[in-house]
């Protein structure tokens, strides 16, 4: 198994920490992992992205052109990375703030109302965990118990009281994914 993922959005949305939690969860499941961020001035309020690879084998390049899964959290990232999904790959996105929806017909497109659901749960900061849950529904590459262990490992101890809330958010995401039909430009639960 090798899963090559790009997570892209605004700096501050928890893009990098979502990637880190996913990578740590991979380690908990004995996977080889790599986490390669875009770093630099573009992170301050601009776009941020991270490439995460989970694999049963030694990972060669941590930097890629095409991805099995793109998790897209803003319009700029949609413009940049829709074309970078491998044919038959997955594009998962939050429609919040998206004006131009994806149009490719050779990939599978899913939607998660991450921002809306997180707001409903009373904490916008868990938005990234809702999205992570949605990803794990589409690609069940990591078991939920390993994600919980990954959360413990990647959050410093003073935030450990938030783990139950994070877990709740992941479960919310697991149950809230819908499929986007390009032809009909509509969502199906």
């Amino acid at each position: 198994m090798t899963e090559e993922i790009i997570i892209a959005g605004f700096g501050g949305q928890g893009v990098l920490s979502m990637g880190k939690i996913l990578a740590y969860s991979g380690i908990m499941q004995d996977k080889e992992v790599s986490w390669m961020p875009s770093y630099g001035p573009e992170m301050r309020g601009g776009t941020a992205n991270v490439t995460v690879i989970l694999s049963d084998e030694r990972i060669s390049s941590p930097y890629l052109k095409m991805y099995d899964t793109a998790i897209i959290l803003n319009q700029q990232s949609m413009d940049k990375f829709e074309k970078s999904v491998k044919p038959d790959g997955v594009l998962l996105y939050d429609p919040n703030g998206i004006s131009h929806h994806p149009t490719r017909k050779d990939i599978k497109i899913y939607q998660i109302e991450g921002m809306k659901l997180a707001a409903e749960m009373g904490n916008k900061k868990i938005f990234n965990m809702v999205v992570l849950g949605a990803f794990l529904k589409i690609k069940p590459v990591i078991k939920l118990e390993n994600v919980t262990d990954g959360l413990k490992k990647s959050l410093s101890e003073r935030y450990h009281h938030l783990i139950p809330l994070n877990k709740e958010a992941i479960i919310k995401g697991l149950g809230s994914v819908s499929v986007y039909n390009v032809e009909e430009q509509a969502f199906h639960i």
Binding site: K20, A23, I27, E32, V33, S34, W35, M36, P37, Y39, I59, P62, Y63
Partner: peptide, 10 residues
């Protein structure tokens, strides 16, 4: 280099 320095692995 910046890639090896900034990336995370186990």
């Amino acid at each position: 280099d910046g890639l090896i320095g900034q990336m995370m692995e186990k």
